[in-house]
Amino acid sequence: MSDKRLGMLIDLSVCIGCNACTVACRQENETPLTKFNTWVESWDAGIDGRVTRANLPKLCNHCANPACVKVCPTGASYQAEDGTVQVDPERCIGCKYCMAACPYQVRYQLESGEVDKCTFCHHRTTEGLLPACVSTCVTTSRMFGDLNDPDSDISKKLAAAGDKAKGLMEDRGMEPRVYYIGLDETLGAEQLSAVHKGGNVLRRREEGNA
């Protein structure tokens, strides 16, 4: 692989679940109605008899060992030079094998049949900009950069966090490159409410109550 490996680090202790990332992503990537490249899952959690709000932003993990790329028969899903996982819509036949193989279920099908997902804002990062979700995050919970560069901010924070920085469902073997600080505390706490999937409150008028 190339010597660049882009990744994200999300500090859950400062995420307030405001969903500014969800909105910025929709504006930036113009995702279709009801489809999201990133979102925040929120629920009430009990820690030591107190009730707190757990917030868990999710997105494509741009895995180092991605099942979606392995199963794609046409090579439409691929790993780019910067280590990110991308979809070439010109090669996609819409077989949905990648959607089935992704343990994180972050992929969706467009009306036109092609499969899409978070690109880590490839069109921005190649111009030296941060992904929209990172640059808009009001508490700087999201950090982004080159994991292979020991001098990058993300590498330094990851090194400082040590064992506390973890990916989602690492036992699935995908080697996710979105890391979380405070994941064990968030998932380990007693769940006291249903999960609110940020952004998914959107309803068509005919579906909901007027």
Binding site: K70, V71, C72, P73, T74, G75, A76, P89, E90, R91, C92, I93, G94, C95, K96, Y97, Q109, S112, G113, E114, V115
Partner: peptide, 28 residues
């Protein structure tokens, strides 16, 4: 028929055996 994007762009079906890591390519 289920592969909507390919159905609308049939030439893309020629890519089907480009990734031999994919079980589906072997299936084809």
């Amino acid at each position: 028929v289920d592969a909507h994007a390919g159905l609308q762009n049939p030439l893309r079906f020629f890519y089907l055996i480009t990734n031999l890591n994919s079980v589906m390519a072997w299936g084809v």
